[in-house]
Amino acid sequence: MFNIANQLTLGRILFIPLLVVVYYSPLEWKYWYSAALFGLAGITDWLDGYIARKYGMDTPFGAFLDPVADKLMVAVALAVLIEAHADVWFTLPATVIIGREIVISALREWMAELGARAKVGVSMIGKVKTTLQIIAIVLLLAFNPASYPLFNKVGYITLYVAAILTLWSMIVYLRAAWPSLKGAK
């Protein structure tokens, strides 16, 4: 159960409070350090899945914990950034992303109860969305928005593209699940 892939996933969860503490610390390099922690978490997200598949370390615990770790890391990073940016133009895409994660998690749980979890498996749109989210969050964590407006704008644009893909992937998943949700056999 506690193989290297699952340990990487657990490590990603342990990064969450560390990210918050570093971001709010008085450290001169807090932006870079918090971005590095988030980026490292993003790398472990890819790495734990790769190791699990390549070396046959897939476990039910890992299958449960990996998406939880991903969603927690993204939601907490976005919550920190919502407070830091404190405007509607940041809060809007951030809440779309967080809201979608809640909806899709509930949908996957419901579909699993129906024995149809595969209908809402991870898609390529979801993978691209996740990659763009990671890039946007790293950019937004790494640079003080007041000191680096260009990087802030690039981060916002990337976050908006991720939010659009977030909505698109949610629609794809809901359409795939719709017959099961409305009770059709």
Rank of each mutant, 00 (worst) to 15 (best):
V74I: 13
A63W: 09
P145M: 07
A118M: 01
M111P: 08
V96C: 07
V103N: 02
L140M: 11
L140W: 02
S123H: 03
A136S: 15
K127R: 12
V74D: 06
S105G: 15
I137A: 09
M73T: 14
M124E: 00
H85A: 08
I82H: 10
V122Q: 00
A86S: 15
G121K: 04
R100T: 06
L141T: 06
A75C: 13
S123E: 05
M111G: 07
L107R: 08
A69C: 14
D70T: 13
A69G: 13
W89K: 10
V76C: 11
V96A: 14
V76R: 09
M124Q: 01
L78I: 01
E109H: 09
Y148W: 13
V120P: 11
V88E: 08
G121I: 02
A116R: 13
L114T: 03
N144D: 13
I97C: 01
I137F: 12
M73P: 03
S147I: 01
S105F: 08
V76G: 10
L65T: 00
M111R: 09
A142C: 04
L65H: 00
E113Y: 07
L141H: 06
V74G: 05
G99I: 01
G126H: 12
V138S: 12
A77P: 04
A77E: 05
A94P: 05
I135Q: 07
G115E: 12
I102G: 05
L81K: 09
A116Y: 10
G115F: 14
K71H: 08
P145D: 08
I137T: 12
A118I: 01
W89C: 04
K119C: 03
A86R: 01
K127D: 09
K71V: 03
F143K: 07
W110L: 12
A146W: 03
A63G: 11
V76P: 13
T95D: 02
A116T: 10
I98D: 10
I97L: 02
I97T: 02
I135Y: 03
K119W: 05
T130C: 11
A112C: 00
G121T: 08
L65W: 05
H85E: 13
T95P: 04
G115T: 14
G99E: 02
R117C: 05
A118T: 04
D70E: 07
A94I: 09
I104G: 11
L72D: 07
Y148Q: 08
A112P: 00
A94N: 01
L132N: 05
A142P: 05
A75T: 14
F143H: 10
I104Q: 12
L81H: 12
N144G: 00
G115S: 15
L72F: 13
G99S: 05
P145R: 06
V80E: 11
E109I: 04
A146F: 04
A146E: 15
V96T: 14
L132M: 10
D87L: 02
K129P: 11
A63E: 15
I98V: 15
G126Y: 10
W89I: 00
T130K: 04
L81V: 10
V80T: 11
